[in-house]
Computed example of a mutant assay.
Amino acid sequence: MFSRLTRARRLLDFQSVLQRRRMLPIRAAFYDNLWRSAASDLGAEVEVARLGLIRIRRDGLVTHVQRSNLPLDDALTSLVISDKLFCYESFLARDLPVPRHAAFTLTELGQAEAFLARIGQAAVVKPLAGTGGGMGVTTGVIDKAGLHRAARYAAGFGPNLLIEEEVSGPSYRLLYLDGQFIDAIRRDPPSVTGDDKHSIGQLVGRENRRRLAPPVTALSPLRIDSDMKNTLARAGLSLAYRPAKGERLVVKGAVNENTASDNHSVKGIVHHDIVRRIGDLVQAMAIRFAGVDLIGGDLTRPLGECGSVINEVNVNPGIHHHMLVRDPAIAVPVPLLILEHLFEERTGVMMP
């Protein structure tokens, strides 16, 4: 028999699934428009193919895309790179900074408890592999009870789990295509702004309704989950708190569910040492279209001096993060750069 807590968690997860499904048409339309616009700028033709693919033709060649999925990295590469522990081992082998971490399962919670006590600060608990977009992730884990809750939640996405120190500071995504550095963004965490009338929970609901209406500012809902509750609790708040008018409150530690106003194009600030070393990394790991996440630090300095850690590497990372930005006028035209590369290098294309 499920406990009341288990039932509540299952219901919350079910509600999250429904919220995400409601945004699927918005996501599909956004990416369709994104690729059509880039193809038009390139003088290519576009048609919707079967299986939910977009077919793009130019100069007698054809390529297919699906949202951020490109015909470059195979399914096996994606599966291997989804193993976060393997990635950390690869980073360390190249003398690259990573957060302190430990792998465990629900039967090995004692090891995770010992790790949490040893680092003496907040931790992040997540599935070891097979998820993305912040699914199964809980930040702000500070005690045994919170660790157990986070571990049970993460285990719903897979039996192997990871606990790591929570690194403070900004979150960056560096984007590479066949080893070439094409963009960087700073992703600030999701927040709500008070109006002196509504609680945080109500403001989150309003934000989710806003995301369902044009103009598009986000492709994911802002979920009420353990991450949000922990983030608020650390600030001495709860979902029932009613912020004053104009009071801005960060509501999650994970950045995946932020909005366009939270994303900032910062390609120009990234130090050439970081560009080179991360480029060498993704090429060594045989990832052709890669998004590498760095947490904390100052990217204007060399990697060994900037204070950042490499948190994750993603295959076929979300392009929308680079297009839904606070200042679209300075956004790097990532879809256009991708199509130019595919057709000019005759890679990821076929002859129909």
Rank of each mutant, 00 (worst) to 15 (best):
C87Q: 12
A290S: 00
A290W: 00
A123M: 05
G291R: 02
D178Q: 13
V98Y: 08
I310L: 12
V192G: 15
R57N: 15
A184Y: 09
A329W: 03
R9W: 14
F289V: 01
P97Y: 03
F91H: 04
E89Q: 14
A151V: 10
Y31Q: 00
E45D: 13
D262I: 01
S3T: 15
R248T: 14
A150E: 06
G307F: 02
R20Q: 05
A112C: 14
L85H: 14
A254L: 11
G130Q: 07
L18N: 05
R94I: 11
R118P: 00
A122S: 11
P97K: 02
N263G: 01
G133V: 01
R326N: 04
T63S: 10
L299A: 10
A114Y: 10
L239I: 06
H341P: 02
G133E: 03
N33W: 02
A112N: 13
P214A: 07
M23A: 04
L294S: 00
A233P: 02
Q111N: 09
E345C: 14
R234S: 08
K229V: 12
A122D: 01
I269K: 13
S171D: 15
L96A: 15
D196T: 04
D327R: 15
D74F: 06
S82C: 04
A244Q: 14
K197H: 07
A240R: 15
R209C: 11
Y153H: 13
R22E: 09
P352L: 03
S265F: 02
P317G: 13
A154F: 08
N160E: 15
A28I: 06
L299W: 08
A233I: 01
S78M: 12
R288E: 11
R7I: 09
T347N: 12
T107P: 00
V325M: 04
K229N: 12
V62H: 06
L76G: 03
G133W: 08
I185Y: 01
A329I: 02
E345W: 12
F157E: 04
S90N: 09
L219F: 12
R234Q: 10
V167T: 09
V309F: 01
K245N: 13
A8H: 05
V124W: 00
G179M: 12
I310W: 11
T107L: 10
S238M: 01
F343L: 11
A117R: 15
L106S: 13
L281S: 08
I287F: 07
I224M: 06
L281P: 11
V315A: 04
V62C: 08
L128N: 12
D178S: 05
Y176A: 14
D95Q: 08
N208F: 04
M285V: 14
G205L: 00
A151N: 10
L281Y: 12
D83E: 11
P352Q: 03
E312P: 01
D83F: 00
I119T: 10
V167Q: 13
I163L: 03
I163W: 01
I56Y: 03
M135C: 09
A155M: 10
R55V: 05
R21A: 15
T300Q: 13
N69E: 10
R211C: 02
S82E: 07
V334Y: 06
L24Y: 13
L116F: 01
S3C: 05
S82A: 08
E340K: 13
N314C: 07
D178A: 08
A254N: 13
Q283A: 01
